[in-house]
Amino acid sequence: MSGAEKIQAKVTEITPLNELVTRFRFERIDGGQLPTFSGGAHTVVEMQDGGITRLNPYSLMSDPFDQSSYTISVRRDDEGRGGSLFMHRQVKLGDEMTISYPVNLFSLDLRARKHLFLAGGIGITPFLAQIKQLELLHGHWELHYACRNHALASYADQLTDRHPNETHLYYDDQNQQIDLENLLSGQPLGTHVYVCGPKGMIDWVRNTAAAEGWPEDCVHYEEFLAPQPGKPFEVRLAASDKVVHVGENESLLEAIEREGVDAPYLCRGGACGQCETVVLDHDGNFVHRDHWLTDEEKASGKKIMPCVSRFEGKSLVLDR
């Protein structure tokens, strides 16, 4: 079986936070305790959306040591294929859903003498759990959180109330921007920086840190890519001897699973490397969107990450 262990949960709270973001609380159906987790972990939520099973990862934002419930915050993506729309429109209080055990691809480096968190928009969620963890362990941290405006700044007021000295907010509509170069160059040795937000922000932080001589191992980032819709295409699965049609609004991985072919996965967002698949033959172009494969691997045409990447062309044969 692919993916992490499953938990049967029910939705016990739905809280709209603002125009775009809604928070969901899950508790176990059997009333038992949920596993503890480490800050930065995500859960994969299964959605039965018409004929399609969607499995979307969301960062756990609740106290990692609180075993009574998990909470996630979902930002509505009107352009996406519908996972977030399903959560916003279809999920009702009391619904039973399957979620996965926590998996952490964005964990704290517990050796750090200081943790510097940089969040963009909904990228705040993993930090909420990490901050709770560090508060318990008396860790040294600082948060810089950039949003479009105050109204869309989920949890900003709560963070400012609880951690006035550690929280720094930046609003686009007030032309505020993180002074990244000075922020990074002033950090004491042993600081680790963590960034979660849109791709542009992650690239900005990674490039600035590299230019200032920060070691790669001290720069951590997480960006779950939502699979993007694209032109339909056909794929032949050589090992299981099947031809599969990948629709406009489903990912290659979802199409493979729909046909009953088991493929490993953890994050479903192009980050963990689990679903890496060997390309046996192709005639056409890959649309690589993952963070996992190196540029050389992408150019080689020999590997694909079916969770987020697609194909445009005549024929594609995979070793699945």
């Binding site: 262990e5 596993p35 055990y101 953890l266």
Partner: peptide, 8 residues
């Protein structure tokens, strides 16, 4: 080993 997950 890197991919051993909680509960498994």
């Amino acid at each position: 080993l890197l991919n051993i997950q909680q509960g498994a």
